[in-house]
Design a protein around this nucleic acid. Sequence first.
DNA 1: CTGAAAGCGCTTACAG
DNA 2: CTGAAAGCGCTTACAG
Lengths: 341, 341
Amino acid sequence: MKKKRNITLKELAKELGFSISTVSRALNDHPDISSETKVSVKKLAKQMHYAPNLFARGFRSQRSHILGVIVPNIAHLFTSTILKGILEEAELRGYRVIISESNNNEAKQIEMLNTMSQFGVDGILMSLTRKTKKIDEVLPILNRIPMVLFDKVSNKVPCTQIVINEEEAAFNAVEHLIELGKQRIAIIKETENSYNSEKRYAGYLRALKHYGLRVREKIILSTEDISLSHGRRLTNILLSMKKRPDAIFAITDNAAIGAIKALHKFKVKIPEEIAVVGFSNSVNSTIIQPALTTVDQPGDRIGRTAVKFLIEEIENPKTDVITKTVEIKTSLIVRDSSLMA
Amino acid sequence: MKKKRNITLKELAKELGFSISTVSRALNDHPDISSETKVSVKKLAKQMHYAPNLFARGFRSQRSHILGVIVPNIAHLFTSTILKGILEEAELRGYRVIISESNNNEAKQIEMLNTMSQFGVDGILMSLTRKTKKIDEVLPILNRIPMVLFDKVSNKVPCTQIVINEEEAAFNAVEHLIELGKQRIAIIKETENSYNSEKRYAGYLRALKHYGLRVREKIILSTEDISLSHGRRLTNILLSMKKRPDAIFAITDNAAIGAIKALHKFKVKIPEEIAVVGFSNSVNSTIIQPALTTVDQPGDRIGRTAVKFLIEEIENPKTDVITKTVEIKTSLIVRDSSLMA
DNA sequence: CTGAAAGCGCTTACAG
DNA sequence: CTGAAAGCGCTTACAG
């Protein structure tokens, strides 16, 4: 009973007394075919539950209509929200999506890239591993398959890149704190030079400069792993200083939540004594007390935009290499952690 | 420069002076081929960066080595954790994974099922939409393609089902509250008869019965949408009662967190006056104050197990219909919301 | 308006 | 041990 074979064009043709060619053309609405023929062919096709073998079609036409997606870790709400956008947009345009994880492992990333290419995907959407050094191994793939990077990108890879307006978002967040009257604004960022961390830091610096505030090296803290526990740890350091900051801008929500937990412990009033701003608008940011002011990153729009640009490239191949960077707008969500009465 | 064609068997054969057949067999380690030939063929293949066209291979062998996955909503941490398990296990076994969403829409679910089948996936992994009534439309697919259900399942679909030990997990959670000395234990569950809600409710009832506690209809509350806000709403109702419950078992973490927020508002001491237990071990459960006691569901194990059973069925097709239910063990994580000194 | 035939890249039963 | 040939299901240039 299992694996009952699907109906093929051949069977339809036999049943109808037409040739395979005619049946194929009728189903594809080829202008040469008479409308009577089309009607009768389509009727029988429906009746017999004919469904074209997409594998054969893809094989024949050298177009799989599959997009390959590679992300560091799928089990992240932000990542899966991007994937949701990718799935929706791809489906709308008649593409299917194969997803795989690099697990933040660069060798695995290259391997997946090769498998995808070998498999015959029409294009690749990728978010890079945390540290992607060996760009040279990515480049040869680019010659064969259109690629678009999103979220974790690198301008060393010459292709379209979809990101959020990291720098501007950080500027706005810090500006918000300044408008609140805060003067000594600490930042918690990443040690390594990730694209995202760098940009957010740049936005922080620009805001201070723009409003004429001094840059105080002592309250610029970095950590390898920008997590809740490290957010807490660094905040403890800030609290032990003779002159405490009056606000903390953490470049991720998790670190900001760690900061809030540390502030709770020392009974520091939020936001009166120290205000806190995060980045991501994760679910957690609404659970923590006080609710966290943060930057909302529209994951689904990132995904949809990436798909749009990729399909554009697939369907209108250019011979020239185009490197454009598309910035998706974010918005600051002000909540109790920075809301002064 | 784009779309440089891949090397084919034909080109390898021409280069080597062998026939295509021989080259194919040499690369696949066919026993008939001399080892010298194999060595030289493989060497050239490597040198020329030959990669088999998986599309052609799949087409020819009628095996795509692709698994189709259909979930209601990918942008859910629990779902994406299951997907992570699926991806890892599938990759380990040489399968690729196509993911799509049903958006909790039954018509879409059928459509995706048909697309997957048409596309030629070797098997399907599915988590059902919230209300799946038209099982008859799912059944014909089962005749053509092996399928395994996970998480949101239905015993009306005759195939392997991977679930967690819902009933037992709920029993353990309630038992834990009883051991704490709680006597009036409220439950917040779903109105509609979802598989998960029913089982958890059954476990709740069994625990009460086992320990000789009365079942009090008034503190058994249901809601259509088992969310944070409804958890809060129902808890307000519980607090307005003349005789309040001394514990709340919410069948999801979100509802439990809503309960905690309502308790905070009315300054009810947790867990002394009212203890709270949730279900899922979501990230939020550690962010809320007090940290929430909850049931940990190992998503990745669910995913891995589902893949194992599916591939087993693909590779050893049975003519008989086998409906087995596999229960993945969960564990109760006790935290401050039910921790009495 | 319709059909016969080639071919996408591979595997495999058949022949030697 | 190796090769010529068929065929998976489809599309499409060529011919009529």
